[in-house]
Computed example of a mutant assay.
Amino acid sequence: MREELRITEIFHSLQGETSRMGLPTVFVRLTGCPMRCGYCDSAYAFTGGKTQSIDAIMQQIRSFSCNTVCVTGGEPLAQKPVHLLFKRLCDEGFDVSVETGGGQPIDCVDPRVSRILDIKTPGSGEMHNMHWPNVDAVTAGDEIKFVLVDRSDYEWARDKVIAEKLNERAPVIFSPVWETLKPVDLAEWVIADKLPVRVQVQLHKILWGEKPGV
């Protein structure tokens, strides 16, 4: 396996999502994604980027003196050498998570990595590209995320959480699409339904707006 990856950006910021929200984190954003979700906020990572050796990537990560690393995209699991990066990071003692859109198998990811699995809703337009066995591969050290476009998406996700008892497998996050669903509406629906999930907004957008490098 070649030891290089196509990288859009590597930067140091605060984690804006997941249970690590607010934690200083080094982000490694890989280039390319086979999905085209209608609400995607990182379409700039679909193309371009720069091919870098894993040695060079590791050197950049170390330069930030931060132990928490998030590998994201694009779709990071679409580049197979990413598994070499996972191993290198974990072997050096980094606390590693990967944010995946769910279209690639997650069962081959290093078990020391926390897998943030995005389950595609009808509103995403990409349900047909979801690798559904991923749901059964989730463990307690992972997290499940639903990005919700509207009330219909919420009801679909709510019913799936309840029917499959997803909250018993891993923490479940409901996140509203920035432009189409008011966070207060989502919060009220979750409270009314007594749903065992975490409502989450994207902290980095509140702090810095929607732009690369945050």
Rank of each mutant, 00 (worst) to 15 (best):
D185S: 13
S65D: 15
T25V: 01
K87A: 14
G73I: 01
T72L: 03
M21F: 11
V197K: 03
M130D: 08
K182G: 02
Y44S: 00
L195G: 03
P171R: 05
V149S: 06
E210N: 13
Q104L: 14
S152F: 09
N167C: 12
K160I: 07
M58Y: 13
L84Y: 11
E75G: 11
L186A: 10
A187Q: 12
G49V: 14
D193T: 04
K80E: 14
F11C: 11
W132G: 02
E179L: 15
N167V: 10
N129I: 00
F86P: 09
C66K: 06
S124Q: 10
S63Q: 05
I119T: 00
K205P: 13
R158H: 04
T180A: 08
I162R: 15
G101M: 10
D185A: 12
L186H: 10
I116W: 05
C66T: 15
L77S: 00
K182P: 04
G93A: 09
E126M: 12
R158T: 02
I191L: 15
F11H: 07
G103K: 11
L77A: 01
P176H: 08
N67R: 15
A140W: 07
E9S: 15
L77M: 03
P196V: 02
W156A: 00
Q15Y: 05
R115A: 00
T18I: 11
V109S: 07
P122E: 00
C37A: 04
P24W: 04
C33W: 11
V214R: 13
V199W: 00
D91H: 07
A140I: 04
L203S: 13
F11R: 03
V184A: 12
A170C: 02
M58L: 15
D142S: 04
R6N: 10
D136V: 09
I57S: 00
F46E: 08
K211T: 13
D193N: 07
P171C: 04
R62Q: 12
V69H: 10
R29P: 11
S13E: 02
M127L: 12
A140K: 04
A137K: 05
L23F: 09
H83L: 10
R20Y: 09
S97Q: 08
L89I: 14
D153E: 03
D118P: 05
I10C: 06
V199H: 00
K145A: 09
L166Y: 04
L148R: 12
L195V: 01
K80Q: 14
L85Y: 12
